[in-house]
Nucleic acid binder design. Structure first.
Lengths: 336, 336
DNA sequence: TAATATAGTGTAAACGATTACATCACCATT
DNA sequence: AATGGTGATGTAATCGTTTACACTATATTA
C-alpha cells in the first residue's frame, strides 16, 4: 500500500508538507506545492491510514453503540439514527449486542476502551448501573433508554412514568378494571413504567390484577400471558412494557381464542412495523426513536469536544397512539 | 493511560518480554518472570492499546458490515448473526447503512479500507456490482444476499429463483390466476425472484397481471399495491419480494377494504415478527438469516486466514411457510 | 542597512505496540 | 578446554501518521 512517504517522494516534498495538505486547515502551504502534492496523491491513489493517524493523535473517529439486542425494534431504529448522525460527522459505529448480560457489557466496554473509541452510547442493564462509574472516567458516555444512578453522565431518556401512567389511564377510561402488567426485568425502564402503571391504578382505586417482571422476549411474554389467561380470574386488559412482550401477549390471546379488545384489551410500548398491521391495531406509547438516537449522538459529540461540560439529562416524551386494541364500545364497558 | 513501558518498568523487564507474556504463544518466558509481569499488569490495570497493535501488525480485529438498511428485518437478523459470529472470534463489527445508494457504498468501502478492517461483509446494489472488482483486490470480501457478476469472490445467497418459483406455484395451486408481482428494484435479488415468479406462471400457461420494480420501502409497496387494487382488472394475488413491500401491500389491501385471502391472496419473502401475528398470518419464504450471517462470517474468516483460497458460493434454501394468507377454500377457487 | 517578522518547508520525535536480531549465561558434547 | 546449542531476555527498528521545532528566504520596519 502506498503511504505518505511515497507521496512525499513523488511530489518532491517532505511528509510534513503532505500531512499539512491533507489536514487542510489554516496552516499555509504554497498553492503550487499544494497542487503538486494533490496530484501525487491522486496519481498514486493514496489514502491515509486511519490506524496510524489514530495512534498519533490518540483518538479515533469511531463510537461504540452498546445495546441489549439490535433485533429489538426500538434499538433497531435508534441504531439507525445513531449511525446516520455519526456518519454526518465522519464517525463510524461499532455495534455491540449484550443480551442483557452484565459480563458481556463489561467485556464490550473494555474492548471499546482498548480500541480507543471516541465515545460510547450505552443502554445498560440495571445490574450494570452500579459498576458504571468505573468506566465513566475513561470514556465519554451517553446513556440511553435506561436511567442510571450516577448523576455524572449524559442521558437521553423517555418520560417512562408519565407515559405508562397515560397508557394505563387510557385503559381505565375504556372500562378496563382487571389489568395485568408485563414488564421487562432487565432494565430500569421496566421498573419506571411499572411505577406509572401502579400510580394510575391507585389514583383510580384499583390495583393490578397481576404484575410480572420477565425477560423481554417474545416467548416469555407468550408464556406469561398464556398463564394469565388460564387463571380463574382473567384480566380484561394486558399492559406490556415493550414490544417483544406485546407480541408474545398478542399471540397468547390469539391462541386462547379470545378477541381483542372485546374480551381483553392490549397495549404496549414502542411503534413497530406490525403494530398498525395486526387486527385490531395495537395502542402504544410511541418512542421518538429517531430523536433519541440523534440527540444521544449529538450529546456524545458535545462531550467529546468538551469532556468537562456538565452532564445533561434529556427527557423526551412518548406519544400515545390510540388504536383499536384498547377502544371498547360502551356496551362492552357496561358488560363488565 | 498506562502503557507497555510502564509495565516493563514495574516488572523490571524489557517491553519485549511484556509483549511476549501478552502474546501468550509458545515463545518461552521464565515462569517466574511471567509472574512478575502478570502482577505488574494487574497492579497497573494495564490494557494493551489495540490501535498501536493494529498499526504494528498491519491488521485489525474488525470487520465491516455494509447493508442497505439495518431496519429491514432481514438485515437486522443477519447483522445480529454476524455480530455473534464475529464476537466469538474476538472481532468487532462496524455497521454501515447505504440506503441502496452506490455513492454511499463506495464511501463506506473506502472508509473501511482506511480503517484497515480485516474484511467486509457486503450486500451491494446491482449498480455497484460492476465497480466491485476494484475493491475486491484490496480487502477480503464476502457478498451476501445479492449475487454479483464477479466469480472472484465469496458469496452467501438464497436459492432465489426456485424459492420464488415454489411460492408462485403455491399461489397457483390455491386457485390464483391473476397474480401481480412487486419486486425490489435495488438488488439483483428482486430480479432473480422475478425470474422464478415468471417461470412458474409460464409453466402453467399464465402470465403476470402486473410486474413492478420499486424501491424496497413500505410506502412504495403501499402506493403501488393501492394503484393495482384500483384498476379495473384486480389481481387475485399479490406476490412481494421482500417484507417491506409485503407490509405496504397488506396495508393497501386493508385500506381497500378487501379481505385476505378471500378477495386477494398475499405472499412474500422473509420471516418477520409480524408475519405470524397479523390476521390472516402471511405465507412467506423464510430465509435462514442466522445461517446466512454465520456462514458469511465464517467464510470471511477463512478468506482472511488464506487470501488465496479459491472463492466459494454458498446457496442456502428458503423455506416455504404456508399460512392463512394464501390458503383459499375450494369454494373460493371455484368461484374464480 | 540592520534587525525583525513572516511564510513555507523540512527534520525528527513522538504515539504504543511487535519482533528480528543480538547478547548472554548455562549446559552438553567432543 | 574449546565448541556449539539452547533458553531467556534485551535492543532497537518498525508500522504510518502528526506536529513541535528549526531553518531559510523573503518582506517589513526603523
Amino acid at each position: 500500500m502506498t503511504n505518505i512517504k511515497d507521496v512525499a517522494k513523488a511530489a518532491g516534498v517532505s511528509t510534513a508538507t503532505v500531512s499539512r495538505v491533507l489536514a487542510n486547515t489554516d496552516v499555509r502551504v504554497r498553492p503550487e506545492t499544494r497542487e503538486r502534492v494533490l496530484k501525487a496523491i491522486s496519481d498514486l491513489g493514496y489514502r491515509p491510514n486511519l490506524v496510524a493517524r489514530s495512534l498519533r493523535v490518540q483518538k479515533t473517529a469511531k463510537i461504540g453503540l452498546v445495546v441489549s439486542d439490535i433485533r429489538n425494534p426500538f434499538f433497531t431504529a435508534v441504531s439507525r439514527a445513531v449511525e446516520d448522525a455519526a456518519y454526518e460527522e465522519g464517525y463510524s459505529v461499532l455495534m455491540c449486542n449484550t443480551d442483557e448480560n452484565p459480563d458481556k457489557e463489561a467485556l464490550y466496554l473494555n474492548v471499546l476502551h482498548d480500541e480507543n473509541v471516541a465515545g460510547v452510547i450505552f443502554s445498560p442493564t440495571h445490574q450494570f448501573s452500579e459498576r458504571l462509574n468505573a468506566y465513566i472516567s475513561n470514556i465519554p458516555f451517553v446513556i440511553i433508554d435506561r436511567a442510571v444512578k450516577s448523576r455524572n453522565v449524559d442521558m437521553v431518556l423517555l418520560d417512562n412514568g408519565p407515559a405508562a401512567y397515560d397508557l394505563t389511564i387510557h385503559l381505565i377510561e375504556n372500562g378496563c378494571r382487571k389489568i395485568a402488567g408485563l414488564f421487562g426485568n432487565a432494565s430500569t425502564t421496566g421498573q419506571e413504567r411499572n411505577r406509572g402503571f401502579n400510580k394510575a391504578l391507585k389514583d383510580n382505586q384499583l390495583s393490578p390484577l397481576a404484575t410480572h417482571f420477565i425477560p423481554p422476549r417474545i416467548l416469555q411474554g407468550y408464556e406469561t400471558a398464556l398463564a394469565l389467561l388460564a387463571q380463574n380470574e382473567k384480566p380484561d386488559a394486558i399492559f406490556t412494557s415493550n414490544s417483544m412482550l406485546t407480541a408474545g401477549a398478542l399471540q397468547a390471546i390469539r391462541d386462547a381464542k379470545l378477541s381483542v379488545p372485546e374480551d381483553i384489551a392490549l397495549v404496549g410500548f414502542d411503534e413497530t412495523t406490525w403494530g398498525a398491521l395486526v387486527e385490531p391495531p395495537i395502542t402504544v406509547i410511541a418512542q421518538p426513536t429517531e430523536e433519541i438516537g440523534r440527540t444521544a449522538t449529538e450529546l456524545l459529540f458535545q462531550r467529546i469536544a468538551d469532556p468537562t461540560r456538565s452532564p445533561k439529562t434529556v427527557i423526551l416524551n412518548g406519544e400515545l397512539h390510540i388504536r383499536g386494541s384498547s377502544i371498547r364500545q360502551r356496551e362492552q364497558i357496561h358488560a363488565n
